[in-house]
């Protein structure tokens, strides 16, 4: 029942990360032309034609739905007929106690048709996709359900071209990240720190910044530094350096990065605003939105006033 081909198990994958669905589709085409067997793609939203391009057959859930509906319809009739005609015939409003009552059964038959179709199909879908409550998800990247589209190739699979060539094709096709050996993980059972440190940061990441391909509105370097200059000049420097690691969300590595762009003190952090955050995120390549979400500003404020 369960479609085994979608299970990631403990395989190792080469993963190309895209931020644009057209590029992903093009990369799929290119790789398939080269005869590369793609394991699967992971997207935060349904990308049209992706399943065709990957060569997946149309699902036959529709036939299952029809059968479920038929069963529902028949059970509606059986239920009503056996109860009101066979087992418990009553004189109700002078109506005959036979098959002519059929007209009264229609609403129930209809509703059960729908009910059986809906539930039958959804359960079949869950079963086929191996979806059960509480099952551990297999992820290759935390952002695959957010804004990044992943193209995964099973490293164990025999391919017509070797791994490094696949990686370079991916780079050429506009992947914003290409990683060589990615193991599936799940967020539910891994701590945040571990994830950041092990999976993403320490992964051998080849970042290819293809200017213009990104949909992001990027700031110019001048703009960035000008946005930060105020922060730097007035509020502190390396001399009064605070332990920024105390802020939740800042690890030792990121502290260094922050220091490198001139942010040393809680005071500086506490004065961050939307503009400066944007600049910092872009300069340090940090998770967009995290700073605000974790509310570094008030964290820093609290630490400052300790």
């Amino acid at each position: 029942m369960i479609d085994k081909s979608i299970q990631l198990d403990n395989k190792k994958f080469t993963v190309g990360t895209f931020d644009d669905s057209d590029k992903l589709l093009h990369a799929v085409d290119t790789l398939r032309e080269k005869g590369v067997k793609i394991f699967d793609c992971y997207t935060p939203f349904p990308v049209h034609h992706l399943d065709h391009k990957l060569g997946y057959q149309r699902t036959n859930l529709t036939i299952a739905a029809f059968i479920c509906g038929l069963i529902g319809c028949l059970s509606g009739f059986t239920l009503a007929y056996s109860m009101n005609v066979i087992d418990w015939p009553m004189i109700i409003g002078g109506k005959p106690q036979d098959i002519t009552l059929f007209t009264s059964f229609i609403p129930v038959m209809f509703e059960l048709t729908i009910l059986f179709t809906a539930f039958g199909m959804v359960f079949l879908f869950f079963a086929r996709s191996g979806m059960v409550h509480g099952i551990k998800e297999d992820l290759l990247d935390r952002r695959q359900t957010n804004d990044h589209m992943l193209l995964a190739i099973d490293n164990a699979e025999d391919q017509t071209v070797n791994n490094s060539e696949i990686q370079s094709i991916l780079q050429k096709e506009g992947a914003i990240e290409v990683r060589g050996t990615v193991t599936p993980f799940n967020t539910s059972h891994t701590s945040d720190e571990d994830l950041e440190n092990s999976t993403v940061i320490q992964e051998e990441v080849k970042v290819v910044r293809s200017s213009g391909s990104s949909k992001k509105i990027t700031l110019s370097d001048d703009e960035k530094s000008s946005r930060l200059s105020l922060l730097k000049s007035t509020l502190g420097d390396a001399s009064g350096k605070d332990d920024l690691k105390q802020i939740s969300g800042i690890g030792p590595k990121y502290e260094e990065t922050l220091n490198s762009i001139g942010i040393f003190t809680f005071e500086q952090v506490s004065k961050l605003n939307a503009d400066t955050i944007k600049a910092i995120e872009e300069m340090t390549n940090y998770f967009p939105g995290r700073i605000e979400r974790d509310d570094w500003m008030s964290q820093a404020n609290k630490l400052m006033n300790k």
């Binding site: 479609d3 081909s5 979608i6 990631l8 699967d40 793609c41 992971y42 997207t43 935060p44 349904p46 990308v47 992706l50 399943d51 990957l54 997946y56 149309r58 699902t59 859930l61 529709t62 739905a65 179709t117 809906a118 199909m121 959804v122 879908f125 869950f126 086929r128 996709s129 191996g130 979806m131 059960v132 409550h133 509480g134 099952i135 551990k136 998800e137 297999d138 992820l139 290759l140 695959q144 359900t145 799940n186 967020t187 539910s188």
Partner: peptide, 25 residues
């Protein structure tokens, strides 16, 4: 959220089925 996400990872195969199911529903 893990419990109710039922292990969803956005695989293209799942999306394919998902869209059909959604349409029939």
């Amino acid at each position: 959220y893990g419990l109710f996400a039922m292990g969803w990872n956005g695989s293209a195969k799942s999306w394919g089925r998902y869209e059909v199911v959604a349409l029939i529903l």
